[in-house]
Design a protein around this nucleic acid. Structure first.
Lengths: 396, 396
DNA sequence: ACGGCTTTCTCCATTCACAGGACAAAGCTC
DNA sequence: GAGCTTTGTCCTGTGAATGGAGAAAGCCGT
């Protein structure tokens, strides 16, 4: 198909497109139940959407005791690309208009190689997905990068862990290469949108989404919308002080949360523990691989290694301490923990919970669920698809 | 006049009322410049507002080189009541429809006496204001209380420093007594709204408003709107841990910010310093009054007393530490410091600034002003008037 | 004083948005 | 097949809104 060019002409059409995106095919009657328009007006707007080609007829539905309804749905050929650039790997996925993942690729990679090398990689992966026949082209792409972004322009700003990206016109460059509209955001915000769209955060308006991977970040959702802050750095909690006069951090300060707990810090601590002979299990893994990662620690913990469990608990307590403060401050309705370290699972979660429930205001924790994200590595790419579809489905 | 009963019938009218509130009298042409409506439609809506009585003609304006314009303004008889209940005193003020303060009373009082005693006081003060002829009655009242509030119902919930208020139907009770609509909110949120309406925060969409009085709280403004959180306790930063294993706090935890710095903590520390003979100045003041308050410390500091200055600096550093974390997290465009301790002035502010600029993410502090509130004790009452007028001027 | 120019405001005709009723189409159940 | 239900279309009436014509009321220069 030729790529999507039309845009909803008004708020009604925008609303209808989002209903079809989030709920799949609907009959006009079903749409009418959810949209507070007269049937006649609704029919007019649906007809206009059919004219644009964004929406197509989808056959007859089963009868519910009367005339059978004619379903409509978003064009089945629409394709969105979700790109989640992490510190050490990229995820690229194609979705249909309902944001269901049709194909998903993951590849190790180092962001520090710079935007040109990374995007070469991304374009190649996108090409592979096309080659499988899942897509002929893309109607839009949502891209996450591991650092702050000037959102309106889609440009990373002063990203600490990705030198060489500062000011690179990601949005423009990718839009050119892919030949479709592109939106760029922080990877943590993408995860927050993903969990909100298809994960644990579906019913919640105000929530926090803490992503613990190589670094630590926090997606902030206020009234259903992501809060990005004045310079796009909102949620950057990795450099909040967790330990007064604690460990030196790459940022120049001491005691930053990230310096004490994150994928990188955990791996480093595990190596040290292994060298000190505190854990035979970790030492064996170190021997075998030459290095350790958070995954090794998770495996050791799962096998019952006390040192690994202690490391995870200590880390969870540190994170919990910071989250406790944020919970008192922000009073969310839900806290989601996600990112690479979700493999650490319930040991980590329990430590975080204990600390938050102990230290936050009782009123703020009274009914506060703290849970693991349920989408894993797909959260980011779904969030990307969601980001661009929100943009494309916004009223003109 | 009989009290305001009409409400704007649509979003246009609501918009117009707010323009007249915030900008004083306007001609139709001036309104047209700001509202994106055709002149004819605008005239229709203005005429309707004139019919309701909310808006009245206000004579001819000077010519600007052509026909003179007929101004319209909000009814000059409209009166809002702003009530700011603090831990140790109440502020009550009357404003006109433009939220200008016409009369303002302040009275020492102890919230712990409970809602009945406090409202007796408030009603008496409102009566006094009426007796001066400033108002014949009130069209609405906005009330701030020093604790979390279930906002839609206007009911305090689990307020730590005000036992006896939990669940008291403040909104309903006051509405009954005053015979007008009432809205209730946290006092810190009121201050944030006040500074946003008439103070330093006018141009900013996302900002934090830290109020340091008997306790410590923080108003959170996201996209121009106050964020209250899921249970109404957002911004309650007094019990964030500032010092690991620090001083015991009334809440049962240790090291809470409030336990280390607040009006109450500062007074306590000053007494102790005086008793230990660290400061002749403070000792003399203690001798004279039998007790010390933050005001005494401010006076001693102004007189150059080193101990007082140290206390303030130490406190500012503690608050700054917590604010630094919040700034990294929230990435505001402005931080306002207000409340009873603003008398401590630039010594406090300097300590806070130093700490925040040192410890927050550079990107988040790059262009971050940290300033004292400019409205002082009127911020709360103006915020109250603003709260209720926003409510009354909302589309039906 | 008097025309030209500007600004403000009103009036009117036309277009568009939308609701809601009438009605047709298409199914179910008995 | 009768009667009922559900779905979808058509049509008309109403109010929202635009934009142009023009009147009212001021300015300024000659």
């Amino acid at each position: 198909m030729r790529r999507m060019t039309a845009r909803p002409a008004n708020a009604h059409q925008s609303r209808l497109l989002k209903l079809l995106r989030d709920g799949g095919p609907h009959s006009r009657a079903q749409l009418g139940d959810r949209v507070d328009l007269s049937r006649s007006k609704l029919a007019v707007e649906v007809d206009r959407l059919l004219e644009t080609g964004l929406v197509v007829a989808d056959g007859l539905a089963a009868s519910r005791g009367g005339r059978r309804s004619h379903n409509v749905r978003l064009h089945p050929g629409l394709r969105f690309l979700g790109v989640d650039i992490g510190a050490t790997s990229v995820d690229v996925a194609v979705t249909n208009a309902e944001l269901e993942i049709l194909g998903h690729l993951n590849q190790p990679m180092d962001v520090r190689e710079g935007p040109v090398a990374v995007f070469e990689q991304v374009l190649e992966m996108a090409g592979k997905l096309k080659a499988t026949g899942l897509a002929e082209g893309f109607d839009g792409a949502g891209v996450g990068v591991p650092g702050p972004v000037r959102f309106p322009e889609g440009v990373p700003v002063a990203p600490p862990i990705m030198p060489g990206w500062d000011g690179f016109p990601v949005r423009e460059a990718l839009s050119q290469e892919l030949g479709c509209p592109v939106m760029v955001d922080n990877d943590v915000n993408l995860m927050a949108m993903g969990e909100q769209h298809a994960g644990v955060a579906r019913p919640v308006a105000d929530y926090l989404c803490v992503k613990i991977g190589t670094g630590i970040g926090c997606g902030i959702v206020v009234g259903g919308r992501v809060h990005r802050g004045t310079t796009g750095s909102a949620g950057d909690i990795g450099h909040i002080q967790a330990v007064p006069d604690g460990r030196p951090c790459a940022c120049g300060n001491r005691g930053c949360l990230e310096a004490h707990f994150s994928g990188a810090a955990l791996a480093r601590d595990a190596v040290e523990a292994a060298r000190q002979g505190l854990s035979a299990d970790l030492a064996a893994r170190l021997e075998a691989n030459g290095t350790l990662t958070a995954v090794d620690v998770a495996a050791a913990a799962a096998a019952g290694d006390a040192t690994a469990l202690d490391l995870i608990r200590a880390g969870g307590t540190q994170v919990g301490q910071v989250i406790a403060g944020l919970v008192s401050f922000f009073n969310p309705g839900l806290v989601v923990i996600g990112g690479g370290v979700t493999g650490l699972g319930h040991t980590l979660l329990a430590a975080i919970r204990t600390q938050v429930y102990r230290q936050s205001l009782p009123l703020a924790t009274r009914n506060l669920p703290i849970v693991l994200g349920e989408l894993g590595p797909t959260a980011g790419v779904i969030g990307g698809a969601r980001l661009i579809s929100d943009h494309l489905f916004a009223p003109a």
